[in-house]
Amino acid sequence: MATGVKQALLQPAGLSFDCHSADDLLTAAARAGIAVPASCRNGVCEICEARLLSGSALNTRNQQTIMVGESLMMCRTKALTDLELEIDAVMAAGQNPPKTFQAKVADVRAISHDVYRVELQLNRRRELSFHAGQYLSVNLPDTDPCYFSIASSPLAQAVELHIQATPEWVSAQKVIDALIQGPEVTVEMPHGKACLAAAPEKPLLFVAAGTGFAQVKSMVDYLRETRFDQPVALYWGVRRPEDMYLRELAETWQREWEPFTFVPVVGDDEDNDWSGHHDQLVDAVLRSGFDWRNVQVMASGSPVMVYTLMDALVGAGLPEGDFHSDVLEYAPR
C-alpha cells in the first residue's frame, strides 16, 4: 500500500486537502476545515457520498479498492494515491444556494443594553449547509427581509444570531418583537461570500465594528474546531465600553487558544463621532505588526469602516484579493 501524505481535490468546489495514511477522507477534510455533511461515522447516513473521478482509494469496511467512476463514503475511505472526487454537497465560499427554512425560536435574551442573543433550531438541519462567516435573512410578513450574521459554527446544531435593536431602529426591533412573540420564524440562508470554506493557509486578521463580532464568532468557533494553528488576531472597535457586549468571550479565546490575540478598541466616550472611531480602529490595525504581504483580512462593519480600512491596508501593501468583506458585495462603490 502506498504511504505518505496524499492530496484530495473536491469538485466542483475546487477545494483540496491533505490525506494522511491513518485518516479517512472525512477526518482529513475536517482537519483542513472543509465541512463535509455527515451525521454518522460508518457510512450509514450516506450524506458524505462522493464519486471517485481519478486516483485510487480503499474502502476501509471491506478492504476493497474503489475504482474510478464508483461512489464512496468519505467516512470509510482512505486515499491510496492523490484523488479527485465529485461531491455536490461541498461548495466553495459563497456558492451555497440559499434555501428557505422554518426555524423554531428556542431562545431570545438581552446580552447588553441593546444587543439580543437569538437561538434558532431547524427541523431540517441536515439539509442546511453554510460556511463560517455567512449570514441569513429573517423574512417577516409584509416587510423587507432583515439580514443578520450567523454567529454559530457550521457544525453547531442551533443557529445563533446577535441582533442590535432599540425602539429607534424600527426594522430590527420589529424582528425582535416577532421572535419574542412567535414560536417560529421564516429564514433564508445562507448568504455572503466573505466566509471560510476551508482553513486559510496564512495568518488571519479579523476587524469588526459593533455587532460585526457575530460574524467573527462563527469563524473563530469554526477555526478552533478545526485546530487552526496560524496566528489569528481580532481588533474589535466600539463607541463605548458597554457596546463590547461579549468582551469576556473574546478574552476567553485569548486565554485558551494559543494562536489568538484580542485587541479591543474603544472610542472616547466624550466624542461619539463614529467616523473618528473608524479612524481610531484603522490606526490600531495598522500598528498591529502584521506582514501585509502574508495575511488574510476579514472585515465586518459599516461601509464607511470597511472601505476606510481596505484603502489603508492596500496602501500599506496588502494584496486587494486578501481583503474580504460582505460590504464589497452589497455596497460596492
Rank of each mutant, 00 (worst) to 15 (best):
A2Y: 04
T3G: 13
Q7P: 00
Q7G: 00
A8W: 01
L9R: 00
P12C: 08
L15V: 03
D18V: 00
H20A: 07
A22E: 14
D23A: 14
D23C: 11
A28G: 05
A28I: 04
A32M: 07
A32K: 06
I34K: 04
I34C: 06
A35K: 12
V36P: 05
P37S: 07
C40L: 08
G43K: 03
E46V: 00
C48T: 07
E49A: 07
L52Y: 06
S54D: 12
S54Q: 09
A57V: 10
L58S: 06
Q63T: 05
Q63D: 14
T65L: 04
G69F: 09
L72V: 03
C75L: 09
T77G: 11
K78C: 13
L80C: 11
L83K: 05
E86T: 01
I87K: 04
D88Q: 10
V90R: 05
M91W: 01
A92V: 03
A93R: 03
A93I: 01
G94C: 07
Q95V: 03
T100A: 15
T100G: 10
A103K: 12
A103I: 10
V105Y: 08
R109D: 14
A110E: 15
S112Y: 10
H113Y: 13
H113I: 03
H113E: 10
R117N: 14
E119M: 13
Q121C: 00
N123V: 05
N123I: 06
R124A: 12
R125S: 09
R126K: 08
S129I: 04
F130W: 13
A132P: 14
G133D: 11
Q134K: 00
Y135L: 08
V138D: 07
S152C: 10
Q157A: 15
Q157V: 12
A158H: 13
V159T: 15
L161Q: 14
I163N: 11
Q164Y: 08
A165V: 02
P167D: 04
A172V: 01
V175N: 00
I180D: 12
E184F: 09
E184N: 09
M189Y: 13
H191A: 02
H191C: 02
K193C: 05
C195F: 10
A199Q: 06
E201L: 15
E201R: 14
V207H: 09
A208V: 10
A208D: 12
G210H: 07
F213N: 11
Q215T: 12
K217W: 14
V220M: 15
L223I: 04
D229F: 02
G237I: 05
P241V: 03
M244G: 13
M244H: 13
E248R: 14
E248P: 00
A250D: 12
E256A: 09
W257P: 05
V266G: 02
D268K: 03
D269H: 00
D273Y: 02
S275M: 06
H277Y: 06
A284R: 04
S288A: 12
F290P: 08
D291R: 05
W292T: 01
R293Q: 15
V297K: 01
M298P: 03
A299C: 07
G301S: 02
S302F: 09
V304L: 01
M305G: 05
T308R: 15
D311F: 06
V314L: 07
G315H: 02
G315K: 02
G321L: 04
D326C: 07
Y330F: 15
